[in-house]
Structure formats: structure tokens, C-alpha cells
């Protein structure tokens, strides 16, 4: 920066640390609550330094769940993980294939298909919940991993991202591959897919988080506790009525468990996360 005023630098860092603190505060309180006993949490105000029940609370939710929900948290974590992985990998796979077809072939109805996929960009699941639910229930996919994931796998965003990327691959590369004797699928596996690595990684981060954090859809299609994801399970742990009925220390432990995997993905794969966010919104 141009001015080298120590005062301004101080303000800069003060504002940033303030922002970071406000953002982190709810998570800190959550963490503290997850290490306290039920009574300590209910004593308003609860302490703001961690207690000694970290181990007990987490073991309790992981193995036995909490509140109305009998589902153990490990089971919900597994469900969330499976859902997130299937959605992320499924989306990437079908989008790679369809984008490859649309970019590298000319065939009747190509643009029609392209627009069909494009239009889905405008129809988030939230606006067509009831009919989609009906379709899934007619197909007998309620309470199944297929029902949880399949309707969320079609993704115009990923198809677009890959299409944009493929368009930047020089034509000569495909021609060189043809001269080298590679057919379309060989070219796809040997050249296109390896070259798309960073796009795939970026999309994976975004879609994993998207899948892990799904709420409305799992809420509709799961009725059995064995299919609950963390996002659903945690809501079910909160008693509808009085606060006293809610085991907040366990709910908060579950909240921590629900946050850790996607937060880790974002922090550890920050480079791809940022790329993914920026690319998918282009």
C-alpha cells in the first residue's frame, strides 16, 4: 500500500482480528458446550472455557445419539459421508462425460441436449420439492442411498465448468492424439481426464460440501433413522418444546462433528476450494 502509516496498519489488523473473532465465536461456544455437562450448559450463562467432559460427550453421541434421535452419530456421519461422496463423484463423472460429448462431437440434438441441461440450472430442488418427492416415492427410492443422492447428481454447473475447460484445450491436442492413433474414449481417459485434474479437484471440494450439507432433500426422503444424515439428525435432536428437554451438550458435540469434515476439506484443499467457487460462478 502507498501510505505507510503505522496507525492504519494497526487498524487493519484490529478489524481483521475482530472479524475473525466474531465469525469464530459461535463455533467456540459450541465447542465449549460440547465439553460441559448438561447442568453446566443450562446454568445461564454457561462458562466460556472448556470443561472436562470432552471425551464422555463425544463417545456418547458417537455411539448412542442424543435426544429423540436414537441414531448414533457415527452412523449419521457415515451416511453424510456416503451421500457427499456419491454426489460429488457422481456429478463429476456424469458431467465429464456429457461435457466431453457436447464439446468433442457434433451430433443431432446436441444443442437441444445442451439447453436441457442448461435449464436445470434454474430449478433448484427447493422449488420443486413436492413433485420430485413424488417421483422418488413412486420409484420406491425413499429411505435408500439412491434416493438420497441420485436426484442431486445432475448438475448443470459441473457440466458447464467442464465444457468451459474443454474449450480451452487446444484442438491440436485432439488431432495429435488422433494421429497417434487414439480413439475418442482413449483420448478422454489419457488426455482429457488427466488434464482436468485441477477442475475435478475444485469441483470435488464444492460438491462434497454441497452434498454433506444437504438438508431439505434428506429430510423428505429419509424416515428411518438408519438413513439420517448428520444435518437431519442434529435437527431431530432438538426437542420441539422446552429447552430443558434438549441435551444441548450432546447436540453441540454433534454440531462439531457435523462441521469438522467439510471445514477440514475447505481448509486443507483451500486452493481448489477457492478455484471451485470462482469457476462455478462464472
Amino acid at each position: 500500500m502507498i501510505e505507510n502509516r503505522p496507525g492504519l496498519t494497526l487498524v487493519t489488523h484490529a478489524v481483521l482480528w475482530g472479524g475473525v473473532a466474531v465469525l469464530a465465536f459461535p463455533v467456540w461456544v459450541t465447542f465449549v458446550a460440547s465439553t460441559l455437562t448438561a447442568e453446566q450448559v443450562l446454568a445461564a450463562p454457561m462458562p466460556l472455557l472448556p470443561g472436562g467432559r470432552f471425551f464422555e460427550n463425544y463417545v456418547e453421541v458417537l455411539l448412542h445419539g442424543a435426544g429423540n434421535s436414537e441414531a448414533p452419530a457415527w452412523r449419521m456421519m457415515v451416511n453424510s459421508f456416503v451421500t457427499a461422496m456419491v454426489i460429488a463423484i457422481g456429478k463429476i463423472a456424469i458431467s465429464l462425460l456429457s461435457a466431453f460429448a457436447i464439446v468433442y462431437f457434433k451430433f443431432p440434438f446436441r444443442m437441444f441436449f445442451f439447453w436441457m441441461i442448461f435449464v436445470t440450472l434454474m430449478l433448484p430442488v427447493e422449488v420443486r420439492i413436492l413433485p420430485t418427492y413424488k417421483v422418488v416415492s413412486d420409484l420406491a427410492l425413499l429411505d435408500s442411498y439412491t434416493g438420497l443422492t441420485l436426484p442431486l447428481i445432475a448438475s448443470a454447473t459441473a457440466t458447464f465448468l467442464f465444457r468451459q475447460f474443454f474449450l480451452t484445450i487446444p484442438d491440436e491436442l485432439a488431432e495429435a492424439a488422433r494421429v497417434d492413433g487414439a480413439g475418442p474414449m482413449r483420448f478422454f481417459w489419457d488426455v482429457v481426464v488427466p488434464m482436468s485434474r485441477t477442475s475435478v479437484a475444485a469441483l470435488f471440494v464444492i460438491q462434497f460440501i454441497y452434498g454433506w450439507n444437504q438438508y431439505l432433500w434428506p429430510l423428505l426422503v429419509t424416515t428411518q433413522e438408519s438413513y439420517y444424515t448428520v444435518a437431519i439428525g442434529i435437527k431431530r435432536m432438538i426437542a420441539g418444546g422446552g429447552d430443558a428437554a434438549t441435551e444441548w451438550h450432546l447436540v453441540m458435540a454433534t454440531a462439531m462433528l457435523a462441521m469438522v469434515p467439510p471445514a477440514l476439506v475447505v481448509i486443507l484443499m483451500q486452493k481448489w476450494f477457492v478455484k471451485g467457487l470462482v469457476d462455478t460462478e462464472k
Binding site: 491440436e172 491436442l173 495429435a176 488422433r178 494421429v179 497417434d180 492413433g181 488434464m195
Partner: peptide, 20 residues
């Protein structure tokens, strides 16, 4: 004939090397 069956090899203007 397909390019691969013509027994030719080509050097492209931008080289077209596989970057990975």
C-alpha cells in the same frame, strides 16, 4: 482412412504436446 491408418506423423504449429 483414419489418420492413424495412414502411416503419417505430424508436427503441429503449437507442438500439441500432452501437457500432463
Amino acid at each position: 482412412l483414419e489418420p492413424k491408418d495412414r502411416d503419417i506423423a505430424m508436427v503441429f504449429q503449437n507442438y500439441a504436446l500432452y501437457p500432463h
